[in-house]
Design a protein around this nucleic acid. Structure first.
Lengths: 209, 209
DNA sequence: TAGATTGTTAATCGATTAACAATC
DNA sequence: TAGATTGTTAATCGATTAACAATC
């Protein structure tokens, strides 16, 4: 049964389903039951079926799910085929690492520009793209219309840069800073990657058994 | 009221509380009510009080919370003062970015070694530490007894490396690969950072409004 | 047909929010 | 004291799990 609104926990599980299904597919398997998939992923069969049925019934009673078809369907839901134009702001250590990880295309994005305000970085190559000086950001956006920006700059600079990006038509921020853009720009789509928070949570886990 | 087991959602909020309280503290504020803190963080006052009361009552009726004291208490719960020895496996783009982000000490960890199996990287400097060849991992661990490892290597190599690390006494993995160590080593403490998953979730958000 | 497994409803569990007496 | 705000219990909400009729 289709649902108009999909709960966040379901969305967050989709990439992991996609990953497991891709592996099963690559391994030559053609079908799988919710029970077996749940076992491999550490979920319950009930949850697997509930999750898939948010988007419609892709299974067959007595048979299970066709892996290839299920994988493609989830890929479609995640929109992996429609590549969104993304720019990267900040070509420091983290920026270069993100930029060079060649996963944009397989995750539904296309990296079209890299910017840094530090002149010494201008012209360096990140993922076959030359780093541009931030001075050229306006012109570049007006010409190329990116919808998303990965933000890998110091926290203090984040607010001002986000203001600029929003002015240039950026709709979504993949945020590696600790600045929270949602407070100032409620309409912006924001996905946070807080490595410090992850590290602290990790530490808590170690120190409490 | 103290609780013996703290729910995961509460733990995951602690670093964010710590961050906000640090900023308030740096800004010269000395006290805050659950209502005001909730408003700034986009939570409810009820949740803030529930969260803090998992660890005991640090507030005062009619007054609120002492920011400095609350910050220090949460820092203590997260164990930010007891630095755990961590090694970094993999000095590629992501490894170097993680290694160079100078946040280990402020998050409860101490980076004591960096390893890569690629000979050309041996001797390169990451965060003032020379990259060692993986051949020296055994000896290094026996001598320095790290408890945690950040894993920034290709997915296919992950399982074998984790097996080796577990053999060397590593108790916890900060995992940047897509290999799931919990399946093979249930006793291991694992904190996953799945950037691809984050990117796909982000894309879903963009494509569905 | 018989067995397997789905889609879906109902029950349970856990987390968040509301309410309020206690008290600074 | 009166006002403010906590700590804590109760109510609500949402997500997960269980159950089972439908059906391949």
């Amino acid at each position: 049964m289709y649902k108009s609104y999909i709960a966040t926990p379901v969305i967050k599980r989709l990439p992991r389903y996609y990953r497991f299904l891709s592996e099963l597919c690559a391994g030559g398997m053609t079908r799988i039951s919710s029970k077996e998939l749940a076992k491999r992923m550490g979920l319950t069969a009930s949850q697997v079926r509930q999750d898939f049925n948010c988007f419609g019934g892709f299974g067959q009673q007595g048979y299970g799910y066709n892996i290839q078809q299920l994988k493609d369907t989830i890929g479609g839901i995640l929109g992996l085929d429609q590549l969104q134009k993304m720019i990267l702001i900040g070509a420091g250590n983290m920026g270069r690492a993100i930029g060079n990880e060649a996963f944009f295309n397989t995750c539904g994005f296309q990296l079209i520009g890299v910017f840094d305000k530090k002149p010494s970085l201008t012209g360096q190559i990140v993922n076959s793209i030359p780093v541009r000086h931030t001075d050229g950001l306006d012109e570049f956006c007006k010409e190329n219309l990116p919808v998303a920006a990965a933000l890998c700059i110091p926290n203090q600079e984040a607010k001002e840069v986000v203001r600029q990006l929003v002015g240039l038509g950026i709709k979504a921020i993949w945020n590696f800073t600790h600045y929270d853009p949602t407070a100032d720009f409620p309409e912006l789509i924001v996905e946070n990657v807080h490595l410090r928070d992850s590290l602290m949570t990790f530490g808590y886990g170690i120190k409490n058994q």
